[in-house]
Nucleic acid binder design. Sequence first.
DNA 1: GAATTGAATCGAAGCGCTTCGAACGTGGTT
DNA 2: AACCACGTTCGAAGCGCTTCGATTCAATTC
Lengths: 327, 327
Amino acid sequence: MVTIVDVARHAGVAPSTVSYVLTGKRPVSAETRMRVGESIRLLGYQPHAGARALAGSRTNVLALVLPLREGVHLPVVMRFASSVVTTAREHDMDVLLVTADEGAAGLRRVAGTARVDGFLVMDVELDDERVPVLRELGRPAVLLGHPAVANGLTCVDLDFEAAGARCVDHLVELGHRTIGFLGAPGAVYARNTGFARRTLAGFSAAAMRRGVASTALPAERHRDAVRAVVGTLLRELARMTALVVHNEAVLGLVVECLRAEGRRVPEDVAVVAICPDELAEQLRLTSVRLPADVLGRRAVELLMAKLGGQHPPALTLLPPKLFSRTG
Amino acid sequence: MVTIVDVARHAGVAPSTVSYVLTGKRPVSAETRMRVGESIRLLGYQPHAGARALAGSRTNVLALVLPLREGVHLPVVMRFASSVVTTAREHDMDVLLVTADEGAAGLRRVAGTARVDGFLVMDVELDDERVPVLRELGRPAVLLGHPAVANGLTCVDLDFEAAGARCVDHLVELGHRTIGFLGAPGAVYARNTGFARRTLAGFSAAAMRRGVASTALPAERHRDAVRAVVGTLLRELARMTALVVHNEAVLGLVVECLRAEGRRVPEDVAVVAICPDELAEQLRLTSVRLPADVLGRRAVELLMAKLGGQHPPALTLLPPKLFSRTG
DNA sequence: GAATTGAATCGAAGCGCTTCGAACGTGGTT
DNA sequence: AACCACGTTCGAAGCGCTTCGATTCAATTC
């Protein structure tokens, strides 16, 4: 193994000088810098991460805590992870993968053993046991997906309120005057899950503002329930010409049921979905996408800012993007 | 921060003794072991990973190299990653996530900086630039998905040959005497991609052995191509009552096209898919699943064996499992 | 020409751990 | 009673790096 001492000897300088060349924490004359750089290249020197961590108390690794249980939309998680790793590498960071089922203990472990400099935590719940632990650990952390927990921590999420509103605006601009909303299962709203409520709030406010007639209903996850809800919607909102769906699990079923009721999609009922892009693509629906890649990038950037001693805003909401797939 | 010296002082022993308690590399009397253990608990001691790596030249981290490009089936990758992390944790290991787009340089980097003890590399191609690098680095590595590259390295994969055969056996037992095979795009076979050929080989051999009529055709990824292939198959293999599909991208289309041709599925044509379980589930098809979780677990176990100085077999093939969803 | 500055570099200490040889008791042996 | 052997424990060295105070030397100032 090539060490910093080897490089120093080869370049005819002290080890500390090599270190300063590498870290840039003290000025080094252009000439020595070049000479040292040359020696590094020649010898193929790569600093020992453990030694660095020990001496410098910085690991250049960040923990990515992912929910890998069933029920989450895996492709989205994956895409997010991917953009996190890519962005982290741009900042010369590596990523340690931690699963959510290790819970708070996992956070304690990787922080306590000085394995990571900071945390990226996805899918944090409202009264999540990890939130207090994260505070206690005092390491920079960025939470994703549930900004409701903020309070001292930094959060990023899609702006669901704007997403709900965006759907209405889009539909109104297309001339629709009566719009339905089909959401998550009732239990989700009861649980006060941030994103579901906020979407609905955005939708309702926009409908009000635009003066369009609207009705919102929750939908359970199985065929009969969906059929019933779609039926109710068509009955109650007789002149409904557009439907916003915020429930990726039943999106396909909704379209099916509409067609079964004799409504053409999108000619009779325009459907706009708030869901992962690929799903909408597959069903050829206009959609507001969840930008997993942007989310990941932004999350890392916020974390790096915190690691750099800055104090980014407690909550960052990413503007939704609507993709029109009409016609 | 609590160090090993603090623990030693608190327990009234030398730091080295604490280390031996922790690692078990030298015998320690039951009494001291208890006393030290108690101090560790009381003080909440957690060893510094960097210091450990530096002194012990072992990081307890393994690199997981994932293909995060488009085109791979994300949920499978995710599930695999999940089981890798879980199993790694059982061996007191952490997992560093590396994306395939870092290529060979990424492997060089994490090995050279002593960040990881070994590699888990998914989706290795036949003439992959990473294979020679992996050899050169000399760290334990386990490759997934393309055992063809073996040669000194350790590989794990699903036994695709057995999978192809299993489908035939299953269908023959149900009474089918004429079976079609619909595979990946032609280019995949031309590229000599391990898994595609092996499945086909297994299928063909089993068909021969069982004495059933069969025809195999490749299928490109778009609707018209699928329609054409299905048409050809129905014409050429007039009495075909069963179809094995090894092409997850067009599976849904195949079923659609069969129905469009007036064949009921599965009454007229029984379809068996070799694909991720969830996809088959969704389409309600009998399938041979790719056991991502078993694969991940086994891969980690093989890697741990290598880290322990053992020499596991160069190739481990996992037996396929067929899930019948008929009726 | 002596004194003062400041940029560039050096040297040594120390981060927290593992590991190896040495030291220490204890019990059994001659 | 002196000795040996063995199971335990200690102490110190060293892993490769960062960092801080000290040092050097040339450029500036009076």
